[in-house]
Design a protein around this nucleic acid. Sequence first.
DNA 1: CGCCTACTGATAGTCATTCTCAAACTCAGC
DNA 2: GCTGAGTTTGAGAATGACTATCAGTAGGCG
Lengths: 135, 135
Amino acid sequence: MKRNTWQREAVREALDASEGFVSAQTLHDRLKHTGSQIGLATVYRALADLASGGDADSLQQDGESLYRACTPGSHHHHLICRNCGLTVEIEADAVEQWAHSVAAEHGFTEAHHVVDVFGLCAACTAKAAAGELRD
Amino acid sequence: MKRNTWQREAVREALDASEGFVSAQTLHDRLKHTGSQIGLATVYRALADLASGGDADSLQQDGESLYRACTPGSHHHHLICRNCGLTVEIEADAVEQWAHSVAAEHGFTEAHHVVDVFGLCAACTAKAAAGELRD
DNA sequence: CGCCTACTGATAGTCATTCTCAAACTCAGC
DNA sequence: GCTGAGTTTGAGAATGACTATCAGTAGGCG
């Protein structure tokens, strides 16, 4: 049986309140700083549950998993600012179809795909142009 | 100055000889078993060099980095069998353009993208149909 | 209210990857 | 072929993300 605990809710809320993708460690820190006495292991567990339940998306970057709240049940991809982390959910029917047809072409079945676009958002592009980015 | 060492060559060859993506650890084991007294750190260094030089592609799966020799200089994506690891390089002009236009639409610049398709290759699909896969 | 059991959390453990630094090696120049 | 300078190597330690452990806690159904 699945129980409701304040910890799970706290993780869900902290994730909802995040702009872009956050790591489990970051989320844990954030929760601690807002007064929650939640354990690291619990944050990992809650995030894994959220992700497997479709309430969060996850991606791996630089050896750590990043999570983000997402529209449950909908299949979409992400456009992520590599500087500020701003994330935009994007529809990609064309890519869905392309993925399936390419897979079929090569005899592959049960195709899943990983499609993410990283770039600099408008604001960060402006900053970059002004020479304010270390990148 | 970049020096040529047998270790670097050994890693390159082992990578070339691999069918699909392999982890640094696996490659290290393989080299050890073929008699090379190469160190793990060196394998990591060589792979990182290869990847940054465009001679190898890398992707992260399940917390570890996988590498694969690839056509130098060409931009392409991968179709990977999640059962046997068979990898097919695929061209994806349509996706390239889609990625750029989506990014531009949202004001993003310098768009990079991660596009990989995972599935079951023809052979593994057949096996799956025959109920021979644990998946 | 009380029991059963899932959940929590501090900590230890695991595992991939990187760091450290002395020794070995490559290679340009002689 | 030899030498010297500076890069590369490698064994093991260090790091850091994540998971397992397990006793204690607390949902939720009766």
